[in-house]
C-alpha cells in the first residue's frame, strides 16, 4: 500500500485533503490547514505555484464546510523565504528578453489570482508564522486576515536590493493594513523587522512564544467557529476589500523594472553568493 508521500505528484487522496511536493492541506473540524514544507525554505517557484493553484481551486469546494484556514510552515527555517530566485534566474537565462518578460508576467498573474482567492475567501484566514517571513512569504501572510507570529519571526521586503519591488501583492496589502511611514521603512530600506516590532506597528495580531504559533492559530480557529458564519463573512467583506487596482499596477511596475540589466545583475549576485548574508546588498 502506498504511503501519502508516495502518491503521484498532485494526486488528491481524498476530497478533504491533499499532499504534494511543496504543500499539503487538510480539512478537519471546520478548519483547513495548509502546510508548507518545500526545502530549503518554502521558496515560491513553479512547483509551489502549481500546488497553490490546486489549493485555490479546492478551496471552493472546501469552504462551505470550513470557517477558518490556517497557513503555516513545517520547516524549521521559517514560514517562507519568498520567490524562488534561483529558478527565476535560471529560467530567465535561457530565454529571449520578450519571452522572459511574458513568463514573469504570467507567473505574477497566476500567483496574484491565488493570493486574491485566499484574501477574499469567505472564511477567516490565519497565517501562523515563524522564522523567515520574507518577500513572497510575507506577501502570502499579508493575504490572510490575521497573522499570528512566533517571537522569532522576521519580516522583510528585500526586493529593492534586486532592483525590484515586491511582486506578489505586498505593497497594496501592506498599505491596506499599516501606516504609509511603516510601509516606506520596510520597502525603501529593505530592512527586516522582528515580531515585537511587527506587533507594535499592527502588522501581526498576536506574538507568541517560540514554537507556539500553530497552537495559538488552532485555538483562534476554535474561537472563530463560535460565531455565525454569515456575519463573519459580511464583516470580512466590509473591513477587508481587495485592492484590485493597485494590485494590477504592481504587476505592471514589476514587469517594467524586471527587464533591466540591474535586476539581472542583482539576481546573479544573489544566486552565486556563498556569503552568510546574501540578503544584504
Amino acid at each position: 500500500m502506498r504511503t501519502l508521500q508516495e502518491q503521484p505528484r498532485g494526486e488528491s487522496h481524498s476530497g478533504h485533503s491533499f499532499r504534494g511536493q511543496a504543500l499539503s492541506w487538510q480539512l478537519k473540524h471546520g478548519t483547513i490547514e495548509l502546510a508548507l514544507y518545500r526545502e530549503p525554505c518554502n521558496e515560491l517557484g513553479s512547483l509551489a505555484l502549481d500546488e497553490l493553484e490546486k489549493f485555490a481551486r479546492a478551496l471552493e469546494s472546501l469552504q462551505p464546510e470550513a470557517h477558518a484556514l490556517i497557513i503555516y510552515s513545517e520547516l524549521k527555517c521559517g514560514f517562507c523565504a519568498g520567490a524562488d530566485l534561483r529558478e527565476l534566474y535560471h529560467r530567465w537565462q535561457g530565454m529571449a528578453k520578450a519571452e522572459g518578460l511574458r513568463g514573469v508576467r504570467d507567473f505574477l498573474e497566476r500567483i496574484h489570482k491565488v493570493l486574491n482567492t485566499i484574501d477574499a475567501a469567505p472564511l477567516t484566514t490565519i497565517a501562523a508564522v515563524h522564522g523567515v517571513v520574507f518577500g513572497g512569504g510575507f506577501e502570502l501572510a499579508l493575504a490572510c486576515d490575521l497573522i499570528i507570529a512566533d517571537k522569532m519571526a522576521r519580516f522583510c521586503f528585500p526586493e529593492l536590493r534586486l532592483g525590484l519591488i515586491p511582486g506578489f501583492g505586498g505593497i497594496p496589502r501592506l498599505k491596506r493594513d499599516l501606516g504609509n511611514g511603516v510601509v516606506r521603512d520596510l520597502l525603501l530600506t529593505g530592512r527586516s523587522f522582528n515580531a515585537t516590532k511587527a506587533l507594535q506597528v499592527g502588522l501581526v495580531s498576536q506574538m507568541v512564544g517560540e514554537g507556539e504559533a500553530l497552537r495559538v492559530a488552532r485555538a483562534t480557529a476554535v474561537q472563530l467557529s463560535k460565531f455565525d458564519r454569515e456575519t463573519a463573512i459580511a464583516a470580512k467583506r466590509f473591513i477587508k476589500p481587495v485592492p484590485q487596482e493597485e494590485l494590477r499596477q504592481e504587476i505592471d511596475i514589476f514587469c517594467d523594472l524586471f527587464g533591466r540589466p540591474v535586476v539581472q545583475a542583482g539576481l546573479k549576485k544573489f544566486v552565486e553568493s556563498t556569503d552568510a548574508q546574501p540578503y544584504l546588498p
Binding site: 525554505c41 527555517c77 521559517g78 522564522g131 523567515v132 517571537k151 522569532m152 522576521r154 522583510c156 530600506t189 529593505g190 530592512r191 527586516s192 522582528n194 515580531a195 515585537t196 516590532k197 556569503d275 552568510a276 548574508q277 546574501p278 540578503y279 544584504l280 546588498p281
Partner: peptide, 28 residues
C-alpha cells in the same frame, strides 16, 4: 559556522535580549 538563516536568528535573539532594533544594514 552560522549560515544566513542562523545569522537572522541570532540577530532576532540579540534584539529581544537587549530590547533594541538592529537594522540589518548596520550589521553589514
Amino acid at each position: 559556522g552560522v549560515d544566513s538563516l542562523q545569522t537572522l536568528d541570532l540577530l532576532t535573539r540579540l534584539e529581544h535580549h537587549f530590547h533594541v532594533e538592529l537594522p540589518d544594514y548596520e550589521l553589514e
